[in-house]
């Protein structure tokens, strides 16, 4: 599903960020733990096709994503990679349903039934017509997960998805991510420094030395 090899990246020439090789198949899960500043988010941006590394390859579903040019990479990302961030970043002018429909529109995968299904699966069907300011923090994060998953991605990348949530919501969110990734046969990578997530994912790597 996802393969990252020989990746090297540096913002400045002196500070090389060490990026581990990663290889995950269907249903595989990986937890990347590290202090802030250890390059976790950089790793995720590289895996998500948002940041081109100086060296190395990232393959998703056999496609070398950095060989794709311009809009092709954007379309590939929209269709195959689901990204969840620390903050939900729901587009405020749009309703929950429209946020999901926009993800389908940009990736060219329009299908109303999958919107309804994912909202139902995440328990936020009732919020379909709501705007973001009518959602609680936990609900908003679930909407952002729904938006990341509505296109049935091959890889789900979650950057600190639980950081701004209370214990209860944090657990729900991690469980939902795992459950949905399993259902759609996607590889799941969660990057976090949140100790609460540790017990849920067995497969772990640590970046930037011991915590």
């Amino acid at each position: 599903m996802i393969l990252a090899r020989d990746i090297s990246f540096s913002y400045k020439e002196t500070e090389q960020i060490h990026i581990p090789d990663i290889e995950l198949g269907e249903h595989d899960e990986l937890l990347v733990i590290g202090k802030s500043g250890s390059g976790k988010t950089t790793l995720l941006n590289i895996l998500g096709g948002l940041l081109k590394p100086q060296q190395g390859t990232v393959k998703i579903n056999q496609t070398d994503i950095y060989q794709l040019k311009g809009a092709k990479l954007d379309k590939f990302r929209g269709a195959n990679i689901g990204m969840v961030f620390q903050k939900p970043h729901i587009l405020a002018p749009l309703t929950v349903e429209e946020n999901l429909a926009l993800a389908q529109f940009f990736s060219g995968k329009a299908k109303q039934s999958s919107i309804d299904k994912i909202l139902h699966d995440l328990g936020i069907s009732k919020k379909k017509q709501s705007k973001v300011n009518a959602l609680s923090e936990g609900e908003a994060q679930r909407v952002s997960i729904a938006r990341a998953l509505v296109n049935n991605p091959k890889v789900i990348l979650a950057d600190e998805p639980t950081a701004s949530l209370d214990d209860e919501n944090a657990e729900t969110v991690v469980k939902m991510l795992k459950e949905q990734a399993h259902n759609m046969g996607a590889a799941l990578i969660i990057v976090t420094h949140d100790q609460r997530v540790k017990e849920h994912v067995a497969n772990q790597i640590i970046m930037g030395g011991q915590l």
């Binding site: 998500g48 809009a71 990341a148």
Partner: peptide, 16 residues
């Protein structure tokens, strides 16, 4: 800017 970045992550191209 954040909204625009989010749009890019869900598949919008620069042109769009």
């Amino acid at each position: 800017r954040y909204d625009l970045a989010v749009m890019r992550t869900i598949g919008a191209s620069k042109g769009q």
